[in-house]
Nucleic acid binder design. Structure first.
Lengths: 221, 221
DNA sequence: CCCAAGCTGACACAAACCTGACACGGAGCA
DNA sequence: TGCTCCGTGTCAGGTTTGTGTCAGCTTGGG
């Protein structure tokens, strides 16, 4: 997937860029609308992440021009909490979704996926692995028939694992993906959450295995 | 949602059955028209998936009988590519949609949803969930016999929930769907309305449960 | 046997949530 | 215009609970 990230804040831009790149996407970054226009003219993107307040104008102008030009690349708007009233008008202008800063990366990823899903005809997306089924819409985890109630963070963490089973995630990577860029939690938090998830997975084939010195991975016992 | 699947091919039937069950639906399977008639006589379905070529007759006979008997359960016909000319006549006979084998499950799901949507936009559309019946036209909610009149906002909110039971809706999403763009209500308003709906749902199986940090969902207790 | 890495029960805190009360404003009416 | 009624959204405060840290423990590699 090819992303265009239009954002003037370097710190945030780099964080998002790192995250999406890590996920295997290609990301171009434009710090202002002018650059964004140049990118758009030459490249076809799968998704545009658009900030509202930019040095050379308002992201909504860009959005409006984008839609009136009949381009239909999905757009997700990144908006600050103070711009609350904008959030809705932005949908009117043709944005596919918006996300309020500061946001967790996992939430950004979830919204990107949701938008893509909606675009491609709205297939349901249950994740299955061994005897566990994860339903991101209902926010539930089913372990061989028994439905387990997950809390917010547990859910987000498990989502990461089940999206790429058998892949090893380092604790630092998990911290990055689980927490927003302005929060820094210790890696011990990850250990704690893995512990909690393990409790929920008791009796299941699917288990979170620790790979000493490297991280954790979801795999079948 | 309760499905009746009329299909003689075991392999296909099982695949569809598994998928729909995973999605949380209840599915009965009939391998022929005789069995299907038996099921229909005893159970009320939300959707019928109907094969054309069946060991004891033609699915179109079934469809025609179904419609002349004034039953209005939606029907989606599963047809093979060779039966192209049938596809049209099938709609004439009262099918709501058709899908050509082999099909993707996600496409099947999408069409089921589309048909349901179309249905609920139309004339009589009572939503039932557990022991509550919701009539959006009469603005009433019937909780095991007791009829409750809902106010405007309560109605619109409940409509969202019952259209997708078990799905978690975040407060911000609900604010978006409930309020027009020029009104910016706080998320607390949602909490208040959920509280009011809960009062109305007292004693019912169906409950609005809060998923802390994520939102609310309608589900059976 | 030692040290680093990982695990976990307990805990304190802040965010999330709930709810009774209230103020606002439009509709209907005299 | 003045009045009441009713639906609505906000607010304040009280309550619940998710969450991250810590300390002390266990485990495993060298």
């Amino acid at each position: 997937m090819r992303y265009l990230l239009v954002e003037d804040n370097d710190q945030l831009a780099n964080a998002v860029l790192d995250r999406l790149t890590l996920d295997g996407h290609v990301v171009d970054r434009a710090p202002d609308l002018g650059t964004a226009d140049d990118f758009i003219a030459t490249t076809e993107y799968d998704m545009i992440l658009l900030d509202i307040m930019l040095p050379d104008g308002d992201g909504r102008q860009f959005l409006q021009a984008h839609r009136t030009a009949q381009r239909n690349t999905p757009v997700i708007v990144l908006t600050a909490r103070s711009e609350v009233s904008d959030r809705v008008s932005v949908l009117d202008l043709g944005a596919d979704d918006y996300i309020v800063k500061p946001f967790d990366f996992s939430e950004l990823e979830a919204r990107c996926r949701a938008v893509q899903r909606r675009r491609s005809g709205g297939a349901s997306n249950l994740h299955k692995y061994g005897d566990v089924v994860f339903d991101p819409l209902a926010c539930t985890l089913t372990v061989n028939g028994r439905e387990v109630r997950l809390r917010n963070r547990e859910l987000r963490l498990f989502e990461i694992f089940i999206a790429a089973p058998d892949q090893v995630f380092s604790k630092s990577k998990l911290v990055d993906r689980l927490f927003s860029y302005d929060v820094d939690a210790s890696e011990n938090a990850i250990e704690v959450y893995v512990g909690r998830l393990r409790k929920h997975l008791e009796g299941a084939q699917a288990q979170i295995v620790t790979v000493r010195g490297l991280g954790y991975r979801l795999s079948l016992s």
